[in-house]
């Protein structure tokens, strides 16, 4: 066990600018600059055994006009979850893909591209994934007003009290 922990420390020694915080018994939070993140993932994978990229999540921060990308990495050797946080600005909203390190990243990046509009350089496939019929702006940005969109797009049916008496919904 000690050997693996030392190797994680070795990673941190090589990258002294990291802000490391142990938030729980098996959770480690790392704040990293955007240009250093691929290096961090590569070191974690190669030296510390963090082989499993379990998710990439994205948070929209409209106040600072930034996207926060969170890379969740799991190590089967030491049973520890590292979440590596990095921030990229709205403009130009481009980042580098980690597909060459972790092949499953293609789905997470495709999803983030679809929902937030972040473009990942080097990602092999950024076609629409879930919203194949979607033509509007990326819907999970905080600037997207869902209720206004729904009110513009869809129509509603108003409640009619006699429906309660008729099991066929008032039209049978």
């Amino acid at each position: 066990m000690n050997r693996e922990l030392e190797s994680l420390d070795a990673v941190f020694r090589e990258m002294p600018d990291l802000k490391v915080e142990h938030t729980g018994p098996r959770r480690t939070r790392i704040q990293v600059e955007a240009d250093a993140l691929p290096t961090l993932l590569e070191l974690l994978k190669g030296r510390a055994g963090y082989l499993h990229l379990s998710a990439i999540s994205c948070v929209d921060w409209p106040d600072t006009e930034e996207f926060e990308l969170v890379y969740h990495l799991w190590s089967y050797q030491v049973s520890n979850l590292i979440s590596a946080h990095t921030r990229i600005p709205y403009d130009p909203g481009r980042y580098v893909s980690v597909y060459d390190l972790h092949a499953p990243a293609v789905y997470f990046e495709r999803d983030i591209h679809e929902m937030f509009g972040v473009w990942f350089e080097g990602c092999p496939d950024q076609e629409p994934f879930i919203l194949t019929e979607w033509q509007g702006p990326p819907p999970m940005r905080k600037s997207f007003d869902t209720v206004a969109y729904v009110n513009d797009t869809f129509e509603w049916r108003e409640y009619q009290p006699e429906w309660a008496n008729d099991p066929s919904g008032g039209k049978g």
């Binding site: 819907p139 869902t146 209720v147 729904v150 869809f154 509603w156 049916r157 099991p167 919904g169 049978g172």
Partner: peptide
């Protein structure tokens, strides 16, 4: 009701017999 991804009135797209 306030989701951009779900439809609201099914009988606008296919005829519905019962709800």
């Amino acid at each position: 009701w306030n989701s951009y991804a779900t439809i609201k009135l099914l009988d606008r797209y296919i005829p519905v017999d019962n709800y």
